[in-house]
Every structure is written in structure tokens, then in C-alpha cells.
Design a protein around this nucleic acid. Sequence first.
DNA 1: TGAAAAAGTAAACAGTGTTTGCTTTTTGAA
DNA 2: TTCAAAAAGCAAACACTGTTTACTTTTTCA
Lengths: 217, 217
Amino acid sequence: MSEHIEADLTPAERRRHRVRQTIIEAAERVFAEEGEDGLSIRRLADEIDYSPGAIYKYFSSKQELVDELKEGFFGKILERMKDVPDDRGPFLEYAQSCVETYIRTALERPHHYAAAFSGSAEASGSVTDHPDFSNTRRAFERFHDVFVQGVKKGVFRSDLDTYLAAKSIWASSHGLAQLMGHLPDMASGFFVGPSHDSNHLIRTHAELLIRGLTTNA
Amino acid sequence: MSEHIEADLTPAERRRHRVRQTIIEAAERVFAEEGEDGLSIRRLADEIDYSPGAIYKYFSSKQELVDELKEGFFGKILERMKDVPDDRGPFLEYAQSCVETYIRTALERPHHYAAAFSGSAEASGSVTDHPDFSNTRRAFERFHDVFVQGVKKGVFRSDLDTYLAAKSIWASSHGLAQLMGHLPDMASGFFVGPSHDSNHLIRTHAELLIRGLTTNA
DNA sequence: TGAAAAAGTAAACAGTGTTTGCTTTTTGAA
DNA sequence: TTCAAAAAGCAAACACTGTTTACTTTTTCA
């Protein structure tokens, strides 16, 4: 989407872009495995053979770098949701697939996903304040679109505000993703009760969630 | 529950307990307003007129102190859920009230609630490993109990594993709490769409969530 | 009364994100 | 080609953080 703009750039700009990308890729690697705590500017500088201060010529703060990782990951979630085939099969299964895809993709990078929702309310501030949370926004809009489609098809309740419903869908999807990412043993015997494999848990959750939205269950 | 054990303790033990409580209360104060970032050992020591090192005579690490805050807050959530009146009115409204109570209480202390689910999967480890996450466990069991009651009354589906269903309920409740705590403008016009007041959003979410579990919607 | 245990402290250790001052390299126009 | 300006990079410092160590003071209890 914003990768191959390498044309008509000066050599200096290309070089700068390349170094910036190197930093992001190294950060991506470390972050995926060890999360925000494992990612320090000094370590990052070490891995790419620069000094810590050099990083600040490309990112004004660690937060800005991490934000870019988070946004990038939400881009992947969004992409996956768009790739859910919607042409064949009942609509309810499509809607369910979208929810499952969101959750499953989030669980591929638990650290990324957790970081996107870590920090306090005031600290993170209004999402709309930030320069680029467009992917996060788009993921939400994806849920909204699906719900609107369902209303049009007559399978989802039409007496609900569509944005309210979308928020509810997002919240439920987010909740399971966050919980499973945070408690790795949640899918298995959590606290008490029998073990469930992740797929079963995700599928059932998505099914129940969609079921609440339907006109007749 | 574990407060008034002051009887038959030596003066030294009472004194120690009191200092410990002073630390927790100061931590509680700072944490509630500024979250984990605002809570430093040095600042805490300053506020209670001790040296930083002294804190470590009462808590082996900052994590242990924060864990106690989190557990304490889950105790409050649990308490509130138990206080939901279950004697009068339709059962579905009771179940809905439990969910709403969980979410509303969580939102009273967004920092506490967020901290309880921050950190990565590996970092936090298995919940059952920790010495005392009994309140978190009990809150989950509360959801389980409600679901089992519903099945017995015939209003909730009996074809679901009760623990699986409880996990789904928890996930959905958690999701909205976390999202609203993290994005203060979620209740209002979030990204796009009209504004909703928090109560409306919470109520609708709880309703949809419960609706998915019923035998006939 | 006197030895042991507990409470408290100042200072240091190892780490963090970030800034400052400086040097080197690269750029782009005269 | 030359040369000033800009950009890139770095070592060192700053202001923090959680935590530990060595030491002193206070309290306990036989």
C-alpha cells in the first residue's frame, strides 16, 4: 500500500527509507518474540549496528516506532478480514468467519495485539488524535460493514444502531483475542473445567456472538 | 475477608501489617490516577516518608505490589457481582445485570483493570501458577454459575459446554470493558457514526451477548 | 542484660528512553 | 571543482527506573 514508492525519489531519500525499514524490521523481529519489554533502543541499535542515538534520526520516540508496528499489524488483520471469501455459503457463516479471522490473526502476534490496547485511557488518548490509526479504524469499519450487510440481507436485527452493534462485535472479538493472548492456558483447562482446543473456543465464541445479532435465533 | 485478623497478633505484627497497608493505600491512590507508569517505588517511598529500599521489606518486587492491587480490584468486581439482586425479575435480566456490573465496575478503575490484562502471554504466565489470583478465578466462576443457572431454568442453551460458554461470556464482557477503558471516546462518536452514551453501549452489548446464549431469541 | 532479628537507610548497580555536542559524510548550488 | 549547508552518525551525559548491598538503628525475647 505504501511500500513501493521508491520511484522518483532521490538516492538519499531511498537510502533513508531503507535504513528506516531496517530499523522497523529488527524491531518487528524482537517485538514479536519478546514484546515491548524486550525491545530496547540500545538492543535495537546493537542488532542493526547503529548507535542508540541514530534511531532518533528516524523516529522521534520509541512510542512512535511501536505505534508503527501496531498499525502495521492491524493492517495485516484488516487484510486477512478482506480476504475472507464472501461469495459462497450462507451469510451468517461469512460473518462468523470475519470474527474468527480477526481473533485468529490477532493471536498470531499476541505481543503486537496486546500492545495495541495497552496503556491507560488518558495515556493513549483519543484514537482520532493520533496521526495514523487508520488501519485500526478500518478494522472497526469492517465489522460495521459486515453488520450493515447482514441487516440488508434480513439476517441481522434492524432495530439496532449499526455503529453500536459494530462496537459490540468488535468488543467481543477483541475480548477473546486479548484473553487468549494473555492467558495461554485459557483454551485448555482454564481454572476449572475441561480442556478446549483454541479452534473450538474461537468458533463457539464467534457463533454465539453472531447469534445475538440475528433476527431469529 | 482478610482484613480484620488484627486480633491475637503481636504488636510487631500489627505494626508491620499497618505499614504494609499504608504502602498499599498510597499505591492504590497513585495507581488509580496515573496508572502503572505513574507508580514508581521512589515516588511511593516519598509519599509515605520511607526510603525506596524499605518498600522491599514488605514486597519482594513492584510486580508483587501491583498484583495485589489488581487482585484487590477483582475482589471489588466480584463483590459487586455478588450483590446483583437475583430474587425478583426475569432471569435474563439478572444475567444481563451481572455482565453490566462487571463492565461498569471495571470502568471505575480503568488503570487497575487494564493492568490486570497487560503484559504478554509468556510474561504473565499461567494464571494458575500465581499464588493468589483467586478473585480473578472467582469472577470467572461467577459467570459460569450464572450460565449454569440459566441452563437449569431452560433459558440458556443446554448443548454447550458450560465452561466454554462461561469463557465466551467473560471474553465479551472483558472486551467491552477493556475497549472503553482504553478508548475513552468509544462511547461517544468513535471514529465514525453517532454518539452513544456509555450506559446505552454497555446495556446493548450485554443484551446481545446474553441473547446469543438463549434457547430461543 | 545481651544476642538475635527486624526495620530502615544511603549508596550503588544495571538498566531504561532521550538529549546534547561533536565529527563525519553527503548534498547541491556557485 | 569548490565550499557552505544539511544530514547522518556517534559517544557521552542526563534523568529516570527497579533492585541489591552494606550498614546502622531499633525492637524483640529469652
